[in-house]
Amino acid sequence: MLKVKVYVTLRESVLDPQGTAVKKSLQMMGHHSVEDVRIGKYMELTFADDAANLDTLVKEMCDKLLANPVIEDYRYEIEEVVVQ
């Protein structure tokens, strides 16, 4: 089994109002060392071991649906999962 972990974040040039609110809250709690907070999304996709062209496939999924390239960046990791 292959597990693809996809991380989607707002582009650095795009203001993240949620992140800004959370940063302020953290600072109010006394965590003044926090300089910035960016909130993103995490997704897990599972494939069979013999899934072909996984890189191409995942890129297409990210570009078309999982992320919006106008405001978001994405990265992903492919992991082999050993079923016990």
Partner: peptide, 17 residues
């Protein structure tokens, strides 16, 4: 329409959330 690429740009959460 934005998601479909028929218009340029994208929507973010309101500034006030």
């Amino acid at each position: 329409l934005l998601e479909a690429g028929l218009l340029p740009g994208a929507m973010r959460r309101n500034e006030s959330l």
